[in-house]
Nucleic acid binder design. Structure first.
Lengths: 201, 201
DNA sequence: TCTCAATGTAAGCATCGCTAACTTACGGTA
DNA sequence: TACCGTAAGTTAGCGATGCTTACATTGAGA
C-alpha cells in the first residue's frame, strides 16, 4: 500500500501484473484485460510487461493457474472440515459448484486454457480425480457408498458437478455478483442431485 | 459459386458474412474472426459489414443463433428416428454430446453468448427442456422410466449431458477433428452414464 | 422518371499486441 | 570498492483491429 518514490525499477512487476489481472478477470471478465492497461495500472511503460510474460496468452495462462490453485485451496479447505469419506466427497462437489458460481470468469478461463501451456492445470485435475477415486473406495469400504466401479462413479460425479457448474456459469455470463446465499442453495441442490442421481446413501 | 461482375452492391452481404463467420468459428475458433477479414473475404470495404451488424458482438450473436438452430435440427433428427420416449430421450442426449464434440468452438460460442442479446438461444433452451420433460412423463406412463419428479430427472440429465459435453470441449480446446467414431463412443458412454446414473431401465 | 433510403466506399481515430534499440541500476566479482 | 554484465525498465513505432463520419452509388417504389 506504499510505493511512494519508485525509480526506474518496479521491483514486483510480475506479481503486481498477475494480481491485478487476476482481480480484473474475476470482476470484469477476461476480455476486459489488456497489456497496455495493466502497464498503466502498474505505473510502468507499455512494453514492460513483456519482460515478464512473453505474450498476452502467457499472462492469461498464469492467471488460469492461479485460479486453479485457489479452487484447489477451497476444495481442500471444504473437505478438511469433514470426517468421513462420503461427506468429504459431497463437500468437494459443493465447493466446486460454489466456486464456479462465485467466480464465473475465472472458472471459464481455467477451462478454456490449453493445459499444455499451463501444465499445472492438468496436474491439478489428475490429482483431484485420484483423490475422488480414493475417497469413493474409502467410502465403499466403510459401507457409505454402494459397490460399483469407482471410476464410473467418479466420472459420473465429475460430469454432473461440472455440468451444474457450467450451467450456472453459462446462464449468467456477466452476472458477477451472485449472492453467496444463492450460491449456497445451488450448491446444495447439486448435492441432492448427486445423492439421488448416483444412488449414494 | 459465381459472382463474376459485382458492381457496388453485393446483394447477399449479410448472409455471406454470417456463413463465412459460421464456418470460420467452426474450423478456427471464435478468436480467428475479424470484421475486416470478413469484409476482405467478401470482397467488400471494411466498413460495409457494419451496415448489417451493429458491432462484432452482434455478428457473433447471430453465429451463435445459427449454431443453436443447427444443434436443434440435429436433436430433432436424432429423436425422429426413434419410436418410444425413452429411446428418443437417449438419442437426444447422444446427439447433444456429439454436436459438442464435433463443433467445440460453436458449442462454446453458443453458451458464452448473452441470451438477452440473442433471445433465440433462450427460447430454444426452454423449448428443449419442455420437450425433455414431456418425454420423461410419456416414458413414465409407458412404464419405461421410473416414477420420480420429471423436472428433477430432466435437470439431472441436462447437467450430466452438458457436463460431459463440456468436459470434452474443455479438454480438447483446439482439437477440431475428433473422429466421428470417437465421438460416437463418447456419446454412447454418456448414454450408459445416464442409464446407470439416473436409474433408467 | 425522380427520388430517397438502403447499401456501399474512403479516410481516419483510438486502441491494441508486440518488437527493436536504447538506458538504468542491482548484485556478483576482481 | 570499483567495475561491469545483465535483468528490468524506457521510447518509438509497426501493423492490425473495431468502429465512426462523410460521401457515393444504385435499385425500387411513387
Amino acid at each position: 500500500m506504499s510505493e511512494p518514490a519508485r525509480s526506474y525499477h518496479h521491483g514486483h512487476l510480475r506479481e503486481t501484473l498477475l494480481e491485478t489481472a487476476f482481480g480484473l478477470v474475476d470482476t470484469q471478465g477476461v476480455e476486459a484485460i489488456s497489456m497496455r492497461a495493466l502497464a498503466r495500472e502498474a505505473g510502468v511503460s507499455s512494453a514492460a510487461p513483456f519482460r515478464h510474460f512473453a505474450d498476452k496468452q502467457r499472462l492469461l495462462d498464469a492467471v488460469a493457474e492461479k485460479a486453479a490453485a485457489e479452487l484447489e485451496r477451497q476444495l481442500d479447505e471444504a473437505s478438511a472440515e469433514c470426517s468421513d469419506a462420503l461427506t468429504q466427497f459431497r463437500a468437494m462437489s459443493v465447493a466446486y459448484v460454489r466456486f464456479a458460481a462465485e467466480h464465473p470468469a475465472l472458472f471459464d478461463l481455467m477451462h478454456s486454457t490449453d493445459s499444455v501451456a499451463a501444465p499445472f492445470l492438468g496436474t491439478v485435475k489428475d490429482e483431484r480425480r485420484l483423490k475422488l477415486i480414493a475417497l469413493i473406495i474409502e467410502g465403499q469400504n466403510a459401507g457409505l457408498i454402494p459397490e460399483a466401479d469407482p471410476e464410473l462413479i467418479a466420472l459420473t460425479s465429475e460430469a454432473l458437478t461440472h455440468g451444474l457448474a457450467r450451467m450456472i456459469v453459462d446462464r449468467h455470463p456477466r452476472l458477477r455478483t451472485l449472492s453467496s446465499q444463492e450460491a449456497r442453495q445451488l450448491a446444495l441442490a447439486a448435492t441432492h442431485l448427486l445423492q439421488s442421481g448416483i444412488g449414494l446413501s
